[in-house]
């Protein structure tokens, strides 16, 4: 049985009209019939940094795969006011930067440069612009010296940062990260936290790392069994021990 918390005291900014992302009643069944999303609705506004938490199998990754059209469910998704359809997939994909959990899946080119250039290149940008974007994206993750490195020579922490650069080079309006701190040692995790804090971009980040949530994200969305069960200020959500316990979460 899904557990719902209809009357959470949410004090989100009143002005948020979902100018970055609007998801309405999104439903999705996997081909084998297994239902993964049961009507998910939420909005993100310019400058939001939101954590998406919940137990494994809650539908977090499935939701993320919908945000730039890799999975197609029923319901509505709007990015920057543009409704996601098959025709505008390329545009949507350049606006939503989706970074997968495993950097070895995200970094599929032999060199760092080629990987960071992949996005802009496949957006159809001219070569000079691609180079500018790569330089800019690598600088943003503080990895400028790494352009000519081979991907397999990078540490896990470096791979994670380059992974983020591979979507920053598309200059997305929304950054969507799946488990960015998984598998990092404390120092690499710290570096990543600083990086995410300083990036001036709207983000939705799925994670199990509650300490990361507390430190970095003013807003938290809890998913469980394919539904959003809570959406509000991180401070308040983390104080609601009953809510956390009901969804298998710890305060961190």
């Amino acid at each position: 049985m899904p557990i719902t918390h209809p009357s959470l005291p949410v004090t989100m900014p009143e002005t948020c009209d979902g100018d970055i992302l609007r998801v309405r009643d999104l439903k999705f069944n996997y081909p084998d019939g297994h239902a993964a999303l049961h009507g998910v609705s939420f909005q993100l506004c310019e400058g939001d940094k939101a954590a998406l938490v919940g137990p494994n199998g809650a539908g977090k990754s499935t939701l993320m795969l919908h945000l730039n059209g890799i999975l197609e469910g029923r319901g509505e998704i709007e990015v920057m006011g543009l409704r996601l359809t098959r025709d505008n997939l390329p545009t949507i994909r350049s606006m939503v930067g989706l970074v997968f959990q495993n950097p070895d899946d995200q970094l599929f080119s032999p060199t760092v440069f080629e990987d960071v250039a992949f996005g802009p290149l496949h957006m159809g940008l001219p070569e000079d612009e691609v180079r500018v974007r790569v330089t800019e994206a690598l600088a943003a993750v503080r990895m400028s010296a790494y352009a000519d490195r081979l991907s397999h020579h990078l540490s896990v922490g470096e791979k994670k940062r380059i992974s983020i650069a591979t979507v920053l080079s598309m200059r997305p309006s929304l950054l969507v990260l799946d488990e960015p701190s998984a598998g990092l040692d404390p120092r690499a995790r710290r570096t990543l936290i600083h990086l995410l804090r300083d990036l001036p971009i709207t983000m939705l980040v799925s994670t199990h790392d509650m300490a990361l949530v507390k430190e970095l994200f003013p807003r938290t969305i809890i998913m469980d069994e394919g539904r959003i069960v809570a959406d509000g200020l991180t401070m308040e959500i983390l104080d609601d021990e009953k809510l956390l316990e009901a969804h298998g979460l710890e305060r961190g």
Partner: peptide, 12 residues
């Protein structure tokens, strides 16, 4: 998964 990662970055 790699195919998805490529799609997400505009591969057509």
């Amino acid at each position: 998964r790699i195919y998805n990662a490529m799609l997400a970055r505009g591969y057509q």
